[in-house]
Computed example of a mutant assay.
Amino acid sequence: MKQKQTFTDTIAAQVAEFRPTFDAQIGPALAEVFALEQEELRRAGIPKGIARVGDTLPEALVYDDRGRPVPLREVLGAAAAIIVFYRGGWCPYCSIALQTYQRELSPLAETFGTRLIAISPQDPGIAGDMAHEKGLFLPLYSDASNALASRLGIVTTPGPEATLARIALGVDVAGSNMGRTPRLPFPTVVVADATGTIRFIDVQVDYTNRTETSDIIDALVAL
Rank of each mutant, 00 (worst) to 15 (best):
I119H: 09
A149R: 01
P58F: 09
F34P: 00
T157W: 08
N209Y: 05
A24E: 13
A31Q: 03
A80F: 00
D215P: 08
T156E: 10
A192K: 10
I26H: 02
I126A: 09
L108W: 07
A194V: 03
T188K: 02
D143Y: 00
Q122A: 15
V84W: 07
G196H: 09
I217R: 00
C94T: 15
G27P: 07
K134I: 03
V171K: 02
L223S: 04
V189Y: 00
P20A: 10
C91K: 01
G54R: 02
A219H: 09
F112L: 02
E32F: 01
G27R: 02
P28H: 10
G153F: 13
A127E: 11
L36I: 05
H132S: 07
G54E: 15
F112G: 04
A109N: 05
R183F: 00
T10Y: 03
T8W: 11
L98T: 12
T197D: 02
R66N: 08
T6F: 03
L223R: 06
I117A: 04
L98M: 13
S150N: 04
P182E: 04
E133N: 04
R43F: 05
L152E: 02
V70G: 07
A31E: 06
T195Q: 13
P185G: 06
G128P: 07
D65Q: 07
A80G: 15
V171N: 03
S176A: 15
A79Q: 12
